[in-house]
């Protein structure tokens, strides 16, 4: 059954890009402002939850299927570990910053080494985990 309230559906369509952008902002600006992979990933995942609450699980399945979410979930964690392991090439301990990511000027976006990359990996994993969690708790009955 589709949720037929026009207000909610229109506003969902209107807000979703902004929600996603805000989540991505939180993820990318981890080293500059409060937020980070986890909060940002949650916001992005909440966008998907909003989608499935408004338009039903079928719409969400079209945009973000279960298989994709499983793959992305493991992929995020693997990217994190691989980024950490790649420090071994330079003889550094696990999760050391790599020389190919210079520190940059503090306060600008391209600073803080590969922290932003790590947080993108975390954010991807968290977003898909939130979606999977909601699905497995039976979100489809809620809308």
């Amino acid at each position: 059954m589709k949720f037929r309230d026009t207000i909610v559906s229109i506003i969902t369509r209107f807000m979703l890009p902004f929600i996603t952008l805000f989540g991505l902002y939180l993820i990318v600006h981890v080293h500059l402002s409060p937020g980070g992979g986890f909060s940002g990933g949650t916001v992005v995942g909440a966008g998907f939850v909003l989608l499935s609450l408004t338009y039903g699980i079928s719409m969400q399945e079209r945009k973000f299927s279960h298989r994709t979410s499983t793959l992305i979930e493991s992929g995020g964690a693997l990217i994190y570990i691989i980024l950490g392991i790649s420090a071994f090439i330079y003889g550094q301990p696990f999760l050391s910053n790599l020389p190919i990511f210079p520190a940059g000027t503090p306060g600008r976006l391209f600073s803080g080494g590969f922290i932003a990359l790590l947080n993108i990996a975390i954010g991807v994993k968290v977003a898909s985990t939130i979606v999977a969690l909601f699905d497995s708790l039976g979100g489809e009955d809620l809308h």
């Binding site: 939180l26 980070g36 909060s39 949650t42 916001v43 909440a46 969690l133 909601f134 979100g139 809620l142």
Partner: peptide, 17 residues
């Protein structure tokens, strides 16, 4: 910010579910 997103948001949604 994390508490607002997770504690107040996700936890509530999960509990309601």
């Amino acid at each position: 910010i994390t508490e607002a997103a997770l504690g107040a948001g996700v936890t509530t949604v999960l509990l309601v579910a």
